[in-house]
Design a binder for these strands. Sequence first.
DNA 1: TTGACATATTCCGTTATAGGAATATATTGA
DNA 2: TCAATATATTCCTATAACGGAATATGTCAA
Lengths: 124, 124
Amino acid sequence: MPRATTTSDVFNAVAEPRRREILDLLSASELPVGVIVVRLRLAQPSVSKHLGVLRRVGLVRARRHGRQLFYRTEALGLEAVHEWTKTFERFWNHQLLQVKLRAEAAAKVAATSGLNPTPNPQGE
Amino acid sequence: MPRATTTSDVFNAVAEPRRREILDLLSASELPVGVIVVRLRLAQPSVSKHLGVLRRVGLVRARRHGRQLFYRTEALGLEAVHEWTKTFERFWNHQLLQVKLRAEAAAKVAATSGLNPTPNPQGE
DNA sequence: TTGACATATTCCGTTATAGGAATATATTGA
DNA sequence: TCAATATATTCCTATAACGGAATATGTCAA
């Protein structure tokens, strides 16, 4: 079987880099499709299709003003992604802590011994 | 063109629900492939392939112990996803704030007028 | 060495995807 | 009504993805 359909899943929707760029753009302000096309230098149909995917998963909403459709992000749906990754927070905090502690220890050794800080000792 | 290759991108790697389940499992503790197979009721080759993807993007690391390969998460790579979604935090905070304020306002009106809280008035 | 076990890899078939080109729809103004 | 503008949709094609089955690799124990 191929990949689970992109259309009904926020994770899949934001897996596509262009769609993330679109969301980035829209995070600053509501924009009509044409502006997105120009700013990201993408083909208009391509942008419309990406917006369609984002709309279907609820990450974006459109408002018509004359001939233009202004899109804005409805980023509430990203909270799920944020929360999921958050459950792994301790891992990178842990990693950063290691680095920090290692640096501090090295600095301390250097201070007391008069040597330069040692480069990253191998292993954990 | 089809989708950007899954192999070199954390966002794509975690777009697949099974891979997220695997990461969830591994977040608790290091596990050999066989255990993942049993717990998630997936075919062994399927699990190996998913682990391969996760390994290639650096979300997982393996350690051999006898015949078994113990995998553990290397979740540092998820920080990028977490940080990206974090840039949209204000949107859902904003939304939740709206809901909260609306509920509070409704409760207040109800309290002073003796009426039931009004259901969500339309619009922003 | 052989056999059993644990895991990875390969091959195959099906299917959703993304881009491009062409076209359809909607809105405005004349 | 018609033309112009803005956007969406459709059709087409190439490709990567996933699952399943079969097989390969690696490790241990006898």
